[in-house]
Write a protein that binds this DNA or RNA. Structure first.
Lengths: 391, 391
DNA sequence: CTCTTTAGTTCAATGATTGGATTAAAACGA
DNA sequence: TCGTTTTAATCCAATCATTGAACTAAAGAG
């Protein structure tokens, strides 16, 4: 990619090779255990080409050859898998009072995780990020890491600058990519909104579906839109902000200046206040015991979500919704009213699949690491793994 | 593209050539009058490669060489342009009581247009489409046509079947692509929703911007979303249906079963009823003369549009709105309240550009033809133009 | 033990891009 | 007017990825 024209690059022989290399790598990732001959049939390349490309992938430590298992007839082929000892990636989730990180290998298996309790509200980003860097270094120990991904509770520009962070106002304006890049000697890519990254995690390591809206009601209401297996970020990278979809023009005033935003009607604080509960645990406990007030609060949140998600689904034609964070915990009482509410609102009449995220707490950290893994698998680039040092 | 794996095709040398060929063609289309040497510098290919590829494009009758105009120094290069006498395309807009068509050449210039008044509600689609085929044949006369595109007021599946058509209920279920394909001996591609195609027309032949929502309030309220210069169709092809975004949960009942859909509050019938006007002309006339009732009706439509479009823009992060059809006619009184209404609702705080479509009546027909042209320019395929005959 | 079947490798051929050399055409300066 | 400079476009041998056919490898069947 040495020259571009309006985003389109020229193609050369090298492009062809890289493309096909990545194509094979992707296939090995999707269906581990395939042989060279099977891959050749799958993708439509010659056995010869597949052989040379696979050799290259093995040389790059991206793929390993497993013992051949005897097939039905003929010479058994050696099965290919992603190299679990090849590149590793670290994903970090910066939250308001906690920072967690996980170490993933190429296959997506979690090798280790660590988290620290740290109030990110009070200190400066620079000091907090030094703790993050230390956490990353501790986690990596002496494994070779190809890159670090970061999930942040706020709007982040493509180059890593915090644009808006209602819950971490002191972080606004600081460039996470730059600061972390100075502290760590591994590439820091893909710093993005927590909800967006959680949506990707759900796609890669959760439900596996490829078209859906993910709603994570942590603080505020965040959304991530996955279309055709890709995160939809919009022209400027701020897509998915569904927290301020208007639900009721006569609803309560929102911090954004309008009335009846989704966040005001179905956000965590709103639901807890409505149920007069002081914590998630209390709310869940009371719902579990049939407390009318609590159930009513959840049901009213479901109604608001149905309106907002209905708008999103109708305009984007998505077949599924995924619930994360706060909403995942309320799932037993939220899913059914939400599903029936949505059913009424979908113009195309197509059924909408309402799913609950199974990833729990670590969704965003997983997704952040996944961004790095995905970049490697998609491009087929030989990762420049290195031992992490904090400077 | 002989084999595919999960949508990804293998690359070969031919792929490279086609890619670069299309890349050059696209550049010539975007910036007519470039020379081979300029193109080489623009896209990053060698002059030698550009020469062979351009020769190929000229041989395919896609590009023509114009007289060299003396530059400042050195040998002047011959300017390249899309071949206006190369492929032509026909776009058809099927409307409730009218069918219009236009003939476009490769450069996007309108060579001719024709339309017939015909009530598409009463007859069968098959009979109506015979009239359409005749119109297309008349329009093409003896020019060589590469393909026909169709815009239809309703939801159409990717293979050309009418899924929903509130204003042409008798058409539901019939396969436009199949019927027209039988009647005409040119390829019929890209049968799509009128609003979607009008949005594309706006992008190609109108404002030229690449990221926006187009709203055309003809009958019902249709939307088309353009992201990065591409129509966003969604996983199943029904994206952009903003007519039923909920605006007011206590609003009037809509045909879809919900309350306060955009269509009920800002649709043409709603606005005319609100103003107690019997036609667009009357409404415009009265607005023009400061009639309070008329102005109020428009202002209230603007408020509803601001709510619905705000939701779409926030979730998709689009920087502009384009008004077409009914809304374009009301623009003088609609734009300002809509713009201020939107400004209040955009979370990112970015300014939203509210534009009025300049294409008028023919937007959809233009866009339908543009689909064909665009296909040729994008793929660089040598079009198999032929003289149209109705069978 | 030989035959059949399937996996994987080797190698000459094809074809697209590349880069240097060459030719073409115009303007500038003397 | 004529040579020099500058830029455009073409020619051509070299490079390199894929291809396809021939070949070797390994396992089961008879």
């Amino acid at each position: 990619m040495d020259s571009r024209t309006a985003g389109v690059a020229t193609a050369s022989q090298l492009t062809v090779r890289q493309h096909n290399r990545a194509l094979l790598l992707g296939n090995v990732a999707r269906r581990p255990g395939r042989t060279r001959a099977q891959l050749a049939r799958d993708v439509g390349l010659t056995k010869a080409t597949v052989s040379t490309l696979v050799d290259d992938l093995i040389l790059s430590a991206l793929v390993v050859e497993r013992e051949p298992t005897a097939g039905l007839r003929g010479r058994p082929g050696s099965r290919l898998e992603l190299n679990p000892d090849g590149a590793a990636a670290i994903g970090v989730e910066i939250d308001v009072d906690r920072t967690s990180a996980c170490l993933l290998d190429l296959t997506g298996a979690v090798r280790d995780r660590k988290s620290i309790a740290y109030d990110n509200r009070s200190g400066t980003p620079r000091v907090a990020l030094r703790r993050v860097a230390q956490l990353v270094a501790d986690l990596s120990a002496d494994t070779l890491v190809a890159g670090v991904g970061v999930a942040f509770p706020g709007l982040v520009t493509v180059d890593g600058r915090v644009l808006r962070a209602p819950n971490l106002p002191r972080w606004e304006g600081s460039n996470l990519g730059e600061i972390l890049g100075d502290l760590l000697d591994v590439p820091v890519h893909s710093i993005d909104n927590e909800a967006n990254i959680a949506a990707l995690a759900e796609h890669w390591y959760g439900s596996g579906i490829s078209d859906f809206v993910h709603v994570s009601g942590e603080i505020g209401v965040g959304g991530g839109i996955i279309v055709n297996g890709e995160l939809f970020v919009g022209p400027r990278g701020y897509a998915g902000e569904i927290g301020h979809v208007p639900v009721d023009p006569r609803g309560p005033l929102c911090g954004c200046g309008n009335r009846g935003c989704l966040e005001q009607l179905a956000g965590r604080t709103a639901v807890l206040a409505h149920a007069q509960a002081s914590s998630d645990a209390e709310l869940v406990f009371r719902c579990d015991h049939g407390d009318r007030e609590a159930l009513l609060a959840v049901r009213s949140a479901a109604a608001a979500l149905a309106v907002a998600l209905g708008a999103v689904i109708n305009t984007l034609d998505l077949p599924a919704v995924s619930l994360g964070g706060f909403y995942a915990r309320l799932a037993p009482w939220l899913v059914e009213p939400l599903a029936t509410g949505l059913k009424k609102r979908i113009v195309s009449g197509a059924p909408i699949d309402v799913r609950v995220s199974s990833l729990g707490q670590d969704a965003a950290a997983l997704g952040a690491a996944g961004q790095v893994i995905n970049h490697i698998v998609r491009t087929g680039e030989r990762p420049a793994s290195r031992r992490i040092r904090v400077s």
